[in-house]
C-alpha cells in the first residue's frame, strides 16, 4: 500500500519536472525571439538613417570654407545665426534685431554667417524646412541670399501647414530679382538639399539644439535684443 503511494508520488514529481522543463524551454525561446526582434528593429532604424544620409554636398557660392553657412560682410567679429525658415521665434528675432545685425555688417564691425538649418521638418507636411533651406542655397548662387532670406521670413508659413510650395518659393525668388529659369530649376532639382543636410548636421555637432541660436565669436548670446547683440559684438571686438 505504502509502496504504491510512493510510486504515485514519484510519477507526480517526474511529471511536474517535465512540465517545468517544457515551460522553461518555451520561455527561453520566446525570450530569444523577442530579443532578436528588438535588435533587428534597432538595426533597421540605424540602416534607414545611414542610407538617408548623403556623403557628398556642394556648398553654394558665398558659403564659408567649411560649407556650413552663407557669409555676409567682412567685419572682424563673427556673428553666427542658426535659423530655420519655419521657426516663428526666428521670424521674431529677424523682425526685432535684423536691422541691428544689418547695421553691424554694413558698418564693417561684424560679418554674419547664416546657417539655414532644417530642424523643423516635422512641423510641415512637405519638409518645408529642408526645401526652403536648399532654395536659399540657390538664392546664394544667384547672389540674392539676404534678400531671399528676408522675403522668406516675411512670408513665413504656419507650423503644421504644408509650407510654401516650390512654385511659391520660385515666385518669391523671382520677386527679389533672381533669374526665374536658373533659380527655378535649382529649386526643383533640389541642387542644395545635400548641403542643407550638411549645414544641419554641423549645427547639431556644434551643440545647437534649437533655433534661433545666435553666437558671437563662437559664444552663444542669451540676450537676442538689439541691445544684447550690439553689446556682445562690442565686447568681442575689443
Amino acid at each position: 500500500m505504502s509502496s504504491r503511494k510512493g510510486r504515485n508520488e514519484a510519477a507526480r514529481v517526474v511529471r511536474e519536472q517535465l512540465a517545468r522543463e517544457k515551460r522553461r524551454k518555451r520561455t527561453l525561446w520566446t525570450s530569444v525571439g523577442a530579443v532578436v526582434v528588438l535588435v533587428i528593429a534597432g538595426l533597421i532604424g540605424w540602416s534607414v538613417y545611414s542610407s538617408q544620409k548623403s556623403d557628398t554636398f556642394t556648398a553654394p557660392p558665398g558659403a564659408n570654407d567649411a560649407g556650413t553657412g552663407v557669409v555676409l560682410g567682412t567685419g572682424p567679429v563673427t556673428i553666427d545665426l542658426y535659423e530655420d525658415y519655419l521657426c516663428p521665434a526666428c521670424k521674431q528675432f529677424q523682425q526685432a534685431s535684423g536691422e541691428t545685425v544689418n547695421q553691424l555688417v554694413s558698418s564693417g564691425k561684424a560679418k554674419v554667417v547664416f546657417h539655414p538649418v532644417a530642424y523643423l521638418n516635422r512641423f510641415s507636411t512637405t519638409e518645408y524646412s529642408t526645401r526652403s533651406s536648399a532654395a536659399s542655397g540657390c538664392a546664394a548662387k544667384g547672389g540674392k541670399f539676404k534678400e531671399f532670406t528676408d522675403a522668406l521670413f516675411a512670408q513665413q508659413p504656419a507650423e503644421g501647414s504644408a509650407g510654401l510650395s516650390n512654385d511659391q518659393l520660385i515666385d518669391i525668388g523671382a520677386g527679389v530679382g533672381l533669374d526665374r529659369d536658373d533659380f527655378g530649376s535649382c529649386v526643383r532639382d533640389g541642387t542644395y538639399t545635400a548641403w542643407t543636410e550638411h549645414v544641419t548636421d554641423d549645427a547639431s555637432k556644434a551643440g545647437v539644439t534649437g533655433t534661433p541660436t545666435i553666437k558671437v565669436n563662437g559664444t552663444a548670446v542669451e540676450d537676442r535684443s538689439p541691445a544684447g547683440i550690439t553689446a556682445a559684438v562690442e565686447a568681442a571686438g575689443k
Partner: peptide, 16 residues
C-alpha cells in the same frame, strides 16, 4: 545612432 534606432525599438516593443 541611438536616436535612429530608438523609434524602431519602441515600435517593436509596442508590437510585442
Amino acid at each position: 545612432a541611438i536616436g535612429a534606432a530608438l523609434p524602431f525599438v519602441e515600435l517593436a516593443l509596442g508590437l510585442l
